[in-house]
């Protein structure tokens, strides 16, 4: 473990960039904290409790191009005309999908333990057999610098959710703030290499163990499928279906895959993966217009079921890391803790 002052600690992103990583840092702007790609003039914010986006937006970017192919669509005076490529005899024309695997290694600087756990959840989802090749390519060689939280805000519940500790393999450098000092504990080999480039003001023999942050509320989560169905769901009348809960959630990964092309060159088609929200009706629509999740309440409960019982069953861990983003950014103030939380004492 080494001790460094703030100025020295803020050199770490440029050290990581020098090691060939594309570094993602929390930046402050317009009153919110947002993860952005590092540049030397980034306004890095280390005091943040809550960020409006999450590592997910870099590992599974919205609008990611899966591949590109040529179609035979043309624009005519009356609109878009799609003619399917037609051949005679055995097929010499094929759909030639062109794609390049995403390159580069990602480094997340000063993410919180809940973010590290959200990456762990996404790994379970995306790397389960068969692995998602795009996610896997982005994920490979990733480095995380985890900054511990001292105290959560009104919405945090990572201690009840059990995700306050960055698990092994998801934390290369663990950092704790102690007064004006930063205690830096490299954990993995890549982390040691990066930390050795810091000019340590002081070496410390002790090692850093995870410490749970202070929580403003304490409760236990009870979220089986039946319990979510029976639990009260208050304030849903004022839900505006803005889907901020799923947009800001660090573990929401539901997606839609669609063809995208512009009308100037409609034959150049991209298959694009876009984020989808279970709060929208079309999420559960099948051919012919049957919708399985018809009401706001069903969709609200569906989100919680996907986070808790479904994820436990399919991936062996809870999909909620207790960051509280879905509560903090909800314009209607809907609080899912009232549905899944049981007060202790």
């Amino acid at each position: 473990m080494i001790r460094v002052k703030l100025g020295e600690f803020l050199r770490l992103p440029s050290i990581l960039a020098g090691m060939g990583y594309s570094v993602v840092v929390p930046t402050e702007g317009n009153g919110v904290t947002k993860f952005e790609c590092y540049s030397p003039d980034s306004a890095i914010d280390l005091d943040y409790v809550r960020a409006i986006n999450a590592p997910r937006d870099f590992l599974l970017p919205d609008g990611e191009r899966l591949y590109r192919y040529r179609s035979t669509a043309t624009v005519t005076s009356y609109g878009l005309k799609i003619r399917f490529p037609t051949v005679e005899g055995p097929c010499p024309v094929t759909i030639n999908a062109e794609y390049t695997a995403p390159g580069g290694r990602l480094a997340f600087f000063a993410i919180h333990p809940c973010h590290a756990n959200s990456i762990r959840y996404l790994d379970r989802v995306m790397l389960s057999d068969p692995a998602d090749p795009y996610y896997k390519a982005r994920r490979e060689g990733m480095l995380t610098v985890v900054l511990e939280c001292e105290e959560g805000d009104d919405y945090c519940f990572c201690v009840p959710a059990g995700s306050w500790r960055a698990e092994e393999g998801y934390c290369d450098i663990l950092v704790r703030r102690s007064g004006e000092w930063f205690l830096v504990q490299p954990i993995s080999e890549a982390g040691r290499e990066a930390a050795s480039k810091l000019n340590a003001q002081e070496e410390d023999a002790g090692s850093l163990e995870g410490k749970p942050p202070k929580m403003k509320s304490s409760f236990s989560i009870r979220a089986s499928e039946g319990e979510i169905d029976r639990a009260p769901a208050e304030g849903l009348d004022s839900c505006t279906l803005c889907a901020a809960c799923t947009v800001t959630c660090p573990t929401c990964y539901c997606s839609d895959i669609e063809d995208r092309f512009n009308l100037v060159d409609p034959s150049n088609v991209e298959r694009v993966r876009r984020r989808m929200s279970c709060q929208r009706k079309c999420y559960s629509m099948i051919a012919g217009g049957t919708i399985f999740l018809k009401t706001k309440e069903e969709r609200y409960r569906w989100r919680l079921k996907h986070k808790f019982p479904f994820s436990e069953k399919a991936f062996g861990m809870s999909g909620c890391v207790g960051c509280g983003n879905c509560i903090a950014f909800c314009p209607a103030g809907i609080d899912m803790r009232k549905t899944v939380g049981r007060d202790q004492g």
């Binding site: 989802v125 839609d256 019982p309 994820s311 399919a314």
Partner: peptide, 22 residues
């Protein structure tokens, strides 16, 4: 069952059904 699967390999979660099955 019928759902509008987008990926076919359990990555898009569009075909989740009660019980947590894809």
């Amino acid at each position: 069952l019928e759902r509008h699967m987008k990926c076919g390999i359990g990555k898009c979660a569009r075909c989740l059904i009660p019980g947590g099955w894809h």
